[in-house]
């Protein structure tokens, strides 16, 4: 069994807003072991990015309140002081952000920015740090890194910038990598290169990875386990094969059915999940998906279902999932593709 790196226990993130307190993340629990990639999927506003930022405590703590536990190697990060947290960030746990343009500093060369994080966490000279930075850039597949290290973010393309972000995130060899939509801003062919790179580096460093994404295709390609979120809650968790083969929650099933496919019948109408995600100010009382769910009963509207373990490693938050699977049309993924 691999080492347990990160364990979220009933994490809640509350924001103070003008219209009162909203709970963007409401009772999220999952574990990440070393060498595995956990995907966190959901649509905009489901709390997946806030979950990621909460792990590193990146949110402004004047208006944010955390509840629950974030255990990194058994220690609760929420009890750490700010300086202790800074030791963890970038050194033990690193993060890659969605938009590489706005997350790199435009007035420093990329080498400078990588060196900064190396010098902050490791005892070495500036010269050593530079050669380390060049090494990292080479590792991420940037051609002629000795030259690129002196370039500024605007001189690089989107794919290159994302490689720099990865080089920076991995420069101190973190145990855990949090990737927040790392390929969303990229084209498919560049995305393929970056996903391959993350996969390779994960294997060579035996890192644990949390992959935040809205793209179920990306999940299927790189993740070993998947957490599906809806409106701040985990509604289903399973290993990747199980989730795609036998999804239990009607939301997961709906999502999988509504993506247009690259193979198979294309003239069929797409499945539609009616309605839209409610705002956090008007969270439904019972099951949060009930207003959009075609199977919702009175019980769903009144009572919130718990996340229960249906079979080993497969958790689902739904009152009726057993009946729904029974009536389901069976296959959700085109196995012939």
């Amino acid at each position: 069994m691999q080492e347990k790196l990160l364990e979220l226990k009933n994490l809640k993130t509350h924001f103070q807003t003008e219209r009162g307190v909203v709970t963007a993340v409401n009772g999220v629990s999952f574990t990440v072991h070393s060498g595995e990639t956990v995907g966190v999927v959901g649509e905009s506003g489901c709390g997946k990015s806030v979950t990621a930022e909460s792990i590193l405590r990146l949110l402004d703590e004047k208006s944010t309140r955390y509840e629950g536990e974030i255990l990194y190697k058994g220690k609760n990060l929420l009890d750490f002081s700010i300086s202790k947290m800074q030791e963890i960030r970038g050194n033990d746990i690193s993060m890659i952000f969605q938009d590489p343009m706005s997350s790199l500093n435009p007035v420093y060369s990329v080498g400078n920015q990588i060196v900064e994080s190396i010098l902050l966490h490791q005892k070495c000279s500036k010269k050593e740090a530079y050669s380390r930075a060049i090494e990292m850039l080479r590792l991420t597949g940037i051609p002629s890194p000795e030259k690129r290290v002196h370039e500024y973010p605007h001189e690089l393309s989107g794919g290159m910038r994302q490689r720099v972000m990865i080089a920076m995130a991995l420069s101190c060899q973190p145990r855990l990598l949090i990737a927040d939509e790392p390929t969303t801003a990229l084209d498919v062919t560049t995305q393929a290169q970056i996903l391959d790179l993350i996969n390779e580096l994960k294997l060579s460093y035996n890192m644990g990875t949390v992959m935040i994404t809205h793209d179920l295709g990306v999940v299927a390609e790189v993740c070993t386990r998947v957490v599906v979120m809806y409106l701040g809650q985990v509604i289903e968790e399973a290993n990747v094969e199980m989730l795609f083969k036998s999804p239990c929650h009607p939301y997961t099933r709906g999502l999988l059915k509504s993506i247009p496919k690259l193979t198979g019948d294309r003239l069929e109408k797409l499945h539609v999940i009616e309605g839209k995600v409610p705002t956090l100010h008007q969270v439904p009382k019972g099951c949060r998906f009930a207003p959009r769910c075609e199977f919702a009963s009175q019980k769903c509207i009144e009572q919130m279902p718990e996340l229960i373990e249906e079979e080993s490693g497969h958790k689902v938050r739904c009152w009726h999932f057993k009946e729904i699977i029974g009536t389901g049309e069976g296959h959700y993924v085109n196995t012939s593709s």
Binding site: T189, A192, V218, A220, E221, E241, L256, V333
Partner: peptide, 19 residues
């Protein structure tokens, strides 16, 4: 281009043509 699109099915392992 077609081979680079991630397929939402973990059972499918395709040969990807990486440009």
């Amino acid at each position: 281009l077609l081979s680079a699109v991630p397929v939402p099915n973990p059972a499918v392992k395709r040969e990807r043509i990486t440009l």
